[in-house]
């Protein structure tokens, strides 16, 4: 009874081997989970790697390092990086405002932040294009100043900024909410300026979450297709993203080339998933140590 009242045996560890056996369904749910994961995700993905291994080396290298493909890597990774940076800054500002201030429409904005998660990418793509084209609401305002944001790499950055917006806000927001106010007050009492208390008290606490959000936004941007192709203009060497290269090769029935480029993207996703995981572990440790 004591352990039951004390709560969370799954975490507490005391007598967990015994108490956990009480619940049924472990074998069934785990078996189904593994089976479903395998047929939907793991086997198809290993199929891609198996296909990559059947390609001959020279063909593979030629496919993944032709000038047009290299230009697409630069654009995809570069634009994702810039968009993730923009999102890290504005995401922090939005999370900060949502957590610490009261203002009219706060609930609405909090809900709207998830819009890029829920809005189909194709809809986002045509809508942003309509806004930024030279006859659009925003594009027509900027055109006299010679600023063109659609149908060039700027458009890619803007689409990826839209897509990645929720990640930083949603990773930083809960950490900022849990940020201990006492620490901040203590810093103030000890004579810290607001900037000092941000830089030395708040920022170190939220830094892991900020980095995680950055990495997630970046990872999402690298793979993004739907919203980008409408606004990018898709000129080879200039504004053609890597996923579009894969589609182009598929449309020419160049399955080997498409697979080769896709394997590069997939390895990049694995690497980023690994980094995100490591960051999340770091964040948990940091939070666990502080509380």
């Amino acid at each position: 009874m004591q352990t039951l009242a004390a709560g969370r045996p799954a975490v507490s560890g005391a007598g967990r081997g015994k108490s956990l056996r009480v619940l049924p369904g472990f074998k069934l749910t785990l078996a189904f989970t593994l089976f479903y994961l395998s047929i939907i995700v793991l086997i198809p993905l290993s199929g891609l790697f198996a296909k990559t291994l059947t390609l001959d080396w020279q063909h593979f290298v030629a496919a993944v390092s032709s000038p047009r493909v290299l230009a697409s890597y630069r654009l995809t990774f570069g634009a994702s990086f810039i968009a993730a940076l923009v999102n890290t800054f504005f995401g922090l500002v939005i999370a900060w405002v949502l957590v610490r201030y009261e203002f009219f429409g706060k609930k609405l904005i909090d809900a709207l932040v998830d819009l890029p998660f829920a809005l189909p990418t194709a809809v986002a793509g045509i809508s942003l294009t309509a806004l930024l084209a030279t006859n659009g609401w925003v594009g027509s305002l900027l055109e006299p100043y010679g600023i063109v944001l659609a149908f060039n790499p700027n458009g890619v950055v803007i689409a990826l900024t839209f897509i990645g917006l929720p990640f930083v806000v949603r990773t930083v927001q809960p950490v900022l909410e849990d940020c201990e106010q006492e620490l901040e007050e203590a810093a103030m009492c000890l004579g810290a300026t607001p900037w000092q208390s941000f830089a030395h008290v708040i920022f170190p606490t939220i830094a892991p979450a900020l980095l995680t959000g950055f990495a997630m936004a970046f990872a999402r941007g690298v793979g993004e297709y739907g919203s980008v192709i409408f606004i990018a203009g898709n000129m080879p060497m200039v504004s053609e993203i890597t996923p579009l290269i894969i589609i182009g090769k598929l449309e020419q029935y160049d399955y080997a080339g498409a697979t080769a480029v896709a394997s590069v993207l997939l390895v990049a996703s694995f690497a980023m998933l690994f980094v995100i995981n490591a960051l999340q572990t770091w964040q948990r440790q940091r939070l666990g140590a502080s509380s």
């Binding site: 891609l48 990872a219 996923p243 998933l273 995100i276």
Partner: peptide
């Protein structure tokens, strides 16, 4: 979490290859 970070285009491609 893996499908989150795989590009949708790659996701489509793996089924074409299968």
């Amino acid at each position: 979490d893996l499908p989150f970070s795989v590009s949708p285009v790659v996701a489509g491609l793996v089924y074409v290859l299968m």
